[in-house]
Amino acid sequence: MKHPAAYLASSLALGAVVLVAMPAQAEDIVVSNYGVSANGMPYAIAEAKGYFKEEGANVTGILSSAGGGTTLRNMLAGSAPYAEVNPNAVILAIQQGADIKIVSDNVLTVAEFVWAVKPDSPIKTIKDLKGKKFGYTNPRSTSQALATMVLQTAGMKTDDVEMVKTGGFGEGVAALDIGVVDIAPVPEPLWSEFQNKYRPIAKATDLLPPLANVVGVSVGSPVPAKAEFIRAVIRARRRAVTYMEQHPDESGDIVAKVYNLEPAIARSAVKNLITSKTAGIEYWGTGQIHLDGLKRAIEVQKMVGAITGDVDAEKMIDTQFLPDDLKALK
């Protein structure tokens, strides 16, 4: 079992990939925080069930990336035809001149987020946080933006609390343990591991609207072979999401092996998220673009200065790789 400190990366950490063509049928794909954060769980199912091969994608490896500025620098010369990253990363890369497009909308909400306190904490509601230490991962991160939104639901501002950078979700749990912070975000699968140890006072599903969480991206004009590979990956992932809905326990067991989790924890995380609805929107999408959620995500990141300037969300989207029944924007 991973110690909380092992969860160094945010499930919604920034990352970017510039993808270049290479003459090969067998390809790697890149998934931010694969093996750590909940967003990438469907890929574990697609690989284990053989969906990639059945759909015509010879996926030789699912590469994990921690995101952030390091990912942006390290992945600019990458060769993977397809990647799953935070939309912020796509926007920043495009603003810097990268020829990449959003080709699928993969995680549609931030339902994995719970903000928790110690069981004996006097904090019972968000309003009780006034003057308290509020943990978040890193400046301009999604966790900082969401913390701002959580406070706003109670008519509060970040000035009403002391915002404390922890550097990661695992580190945030450790900081909560020793009293460095009074509240910390504990996303899945960490929440399923520690839900008996902490008390939630805010859940994203209850407070926040649907927000684009991670998206699939590719180069603007991939060569035909890579275009078919991308279509096959999207189809395989879609099948995996359906399998997770129909077989949550079996899916949890697969995830447990890939994510190095106890089966009960993985099963809990999968069940929690596969049954989650935020304003009627599921957590794991099948690829169809939810434009409103993407626009909300952009505005949220502007709130903390992660994104600046005008952003035309529709110009970043290319639906040609989606199955015909998913091509319409929602």
Rank of each mutant, 00 (worst) to 15 (best):
M149E: 12
L72T: 07
I281D: 05
Q288A: 13
D105T: 10
G35T: 07
A21R: 12
K277H: 13
I298Q: 11
E27C: 04
N88S: 08
T319A: 07
R238F: 10
G168L: 01
K226W: 13
D253G: 03
T286L: 13
Q195F: 09
H290S: 15
T308F: 04
D206T: 01
P210A: 06
P23A: 15
D324T: 11
I234W: 11
L208Q: 03
V103S: 05
V233Y: 12
V186P: 02
R237H: 14
A48P: 09
L261T: 09
P263A: 05
E193H: 01
R267A: 04
Q152L: 14
L190H: 03
A174D: 10
L211N: 03
I230S: 06
S32L: 10
K203L: 03
G252C: 06
A236M: 11
V311E: 09
A5C: 14
P81K: 03
A174T: 15
E262C: 11
E162D: 06
L19Q: 15
D292L: 07
L329G: 05
K257N: 10
I94M: 04
I123P: 06
M75I: 11
P42A: 14
A44D: 06
M1W: 11
G167P: 02
Q144C: 09
D128L: 04
G285P: 01
D128P: 02
G135K: 02
A46K: 04
S64P: 09
E47K: 15
A212L: 09
D120Q: 15
E54K: 15
V241K: 01
I45A: 10
P139S: 13
G40S: 09
R238Q: 10
R73P: 06
K118I: 07
G61M: 08
S192F: 08
D292I: 12
L329Y: 12
P81V: 07
I62L: 05
I123F: 03
E299P: 04
D325C: 10
D177F: 02
M41N: 00
R73S: 15
P4H: 12
S276M: 09
D159A: 14
T137P: 01
A80L: 02
K330N: 14
K165M: 13
N260G: 14
I234P: 00
Q152H: 13
P209R: 14
L12N: 08
Q25S: 14
Q195N: 15
F321M: 13
G35M: 09
V181A: 02
F52S: 10
V90Q: 00
S37Y: 03
Q144S: 09
G78V: 13
V30D: 03
G135I: 11
A16Y: 08
T142Y: 00
D206Y: 05
T205Y: 08
F321G: 05
G285F: 07
Y51M: 02
E282T: 07
Y259N: 08
R267E: 11
G15L: 00
I298W: 00
S276W: 01
K2S: 13
F113K: 01
V59I: 12
D105W: 03
K330C: 06
D249L: 00
L176V: 11
E112I: 00
V161H: 07
K330P: 15
H290I: 11
L63Q: 12
P263Q: 07
G155E: 03
A328G: 02
K118S: 10
V173D: 00
A225Y: 05
A98G: 02
L12V: 11
S79A: 12
L151G: 02
F194C: 10
T137C: 11
A98I: 06
K133L: 10
Q195V: 14
T286H: 13
